[in-house]
């Protein structure tokens, strides 16, 4: 089974984790017109590549960010949200 490293709990099989989707930073919703907002909500960055994603280590309920290559399934880096620079 694929391994993922939780920044707190260490390296565990992927079955201990829940995928939370790509990290998407949405700017002030009220500043966007209807069309732009709808695109923000529905449209995805669908092509493969290195993406920042939410993952949760379920037994400890730890959410963190994983930088993962969605073409190869290699996780390049994991860190707690907002602590990217501290690593």
């Amino acid at each position: 089974m694929k391994l993922i490293t939780c920044p707190i709990n260490g390296t565990r099989p992927v079955s201990e984790f829940v995928y939370g989707g790509e990290l998407r930073l949405i700017s002030d919703p009220q500043a966007l017109d209807d069309q732009t907002w709808a695109e923000q909500v529905f449209y995805r960055n669908g092509a493969p590549g290195i993406k920042k994603e939410w993952w949760c280590h379920v037994p400890s309920n730890t959410w963190f960010i994983a930088e993962r290559n969605t073409a190869t399934d290699e996780t390049l880096n994991t860190y707690l949200y907002g602590e990217e620079d501290s690593r």
């Binding site: 089974m1 694929k2 099989p13 995928y19 790509e22 493969p48 993406k51 969605t70 073409a71 399934d73």
Partner: peptide
Amino acid sequence: ELHSTRSTFD
């Protein structure tokens, strides 16, 4: 999400 046709044992 994954763009690979790898198999998993699980």
